[in-house]
Design a protein around this nucleic acid. Structure first.
Lengths: 212, 212
DNA sequence: CGTGTAATTGAGTAGGGTCAACGTGAGTGG
DNA sequence: CCACTCACGTTGACCCTACTCAATTACACG
């Protein structure tokens, strides 16, 4: 695996920089080293949907590696980030040569596929409030750190981003968060959310009747 | 590849039969030989979402093959069907031994992932009418046959199924189809849709102002 | 010819999207 | 250190899409 490291290039990106654009040639596969990245797709009329939020250690922009010509989405950094880039050809070679590696990729893709399908299920059946609750819980799980105030979500998360993540609008996301903040369930701050009482959020997410 | 065929078992299912259930052990990977199958997931409150409609020749229930313990969804036949089953272990062996096979699986999964993401995009940004138009066009593309009346969708498709496919309700799906039938865009029949004027449907799907 | 499943259609309603005006807090430069 | 600015966030009013509920009709199959 040393040979892998040798092919890699480390690049730095400022907050808000584009790592790659939808439709451009997929020359490399990227691995996030530090920072955060969002992968988004845009509609013709400018609405943005966040496909995935990338944590340090995760692979993204894999399209080139598994045979796509161009990136099917755009990647933007949410913080200053450092990213390892592995040329697509080298990646493909790895897959061919090492069956473990191939198997790992298959597992990775299968996991993501199930996540995507779960999201489809959610979008088709759940109301906005629940979707937001679930999204927050998911983010807390993946990126949260315990503080004395509660579980703090470790991604800079504007109301707009949250809306783009769970298929609603800025206004609605804001309203819902404000409501929960007032109810003491969360701390809703500028680009940051801290969950005070996860169980109440779970109750909303799972529609458990809340006995106050 | 002969050895593959040797491991396979051919099974027959009547219309409406369950090929496998969500949550049960994934012992085999299936390939549809003849007929049609829908892969669905259900919510706790009984709402059904169609994840995918399977055509002859397509693989489904791959979970076991790529390392999952249990099926994450349920498969039901839409017509009398014949299905080839390959034990999960044999499948895994194939992936390990033949890098072409592994690569093909990676491509397959990547394609599905992009399809799923496209659907997420649609669900988050498009209105019901457009989603139905797109779903019909997609089905027509995949399963359609030209007749003198137009392009006939080759899957038995009740209003309910259509609704489950594009995230709406029976009533709404029925209303929309009736409207289009009256407008002469499609023939809406019992469990069958034939597209008369695809361009008009495209216009709706892409929101092109229709000059009558 | 009866029975069950699919489909149609109406009336009523509300979730949440749209638009718009107004706060607010974090950087920036003097 | 303070004021200015800009992006982020809040909140209200309005309204429309599409869901819910429910009654009725049309088919297909035994």
């Amino acid at each position: 695996m040393l040979e892998v490291a040798r092919c890699c290039r480390l690049r730095r990106f400022e907050r808000g920089a584009f790592v790659f654009f939808e439709g451009t040639r997929a020359r490399a596969v990227q691995v996030l080293y530090t920072g955060r990245v969002k992968v988004v797709r845009e509609t013709d009329d400018g609405r943005e949907v966040i496909i995935r939020i990338i944590q340090p250690g995760e692979i993204f922009g894999g399209a080139g590696g598994w045979g796509r010509e161009v990136y099917p989405a755009t990647a933007v950094t949410l913080e200053d980030s450092r990213i390892l880039e592995l040329p697509s050809e080298d990646f493909a070679t790895l897959v061919e040569r090492y069956s473990d590696f191939a198997m790992a990729m298959i597992r990775e893709l299968a996991t993501r596929l199930r996540e995507a399908e779960a999201r489809i299920l959610e979008l088709q059946t759940e109301r906005v409030e629940r979707r937001i609750a679930r999204t927050l819980l998911r983010l807390a799980n993946k990126t949260g750190t315990k503080t004395e105030r509660g579980i703090e979500i470790g991604v800079p998360l504007s109301r707009q981003s949250l809306a783009d993540l769970c298929g609603t609008t800025l206004s609605t996301a804001s309203r819902v968060l404000s409501g929960w903040d007032r109810a003491g369930i969360i701390f809703a701050e500028r680009e940051h959310v801290t969950i005070r009482h996860a169980h109440q959020l779970v109750a909303i997410a799972e529609d458990i009747a809340e006995a106050e």
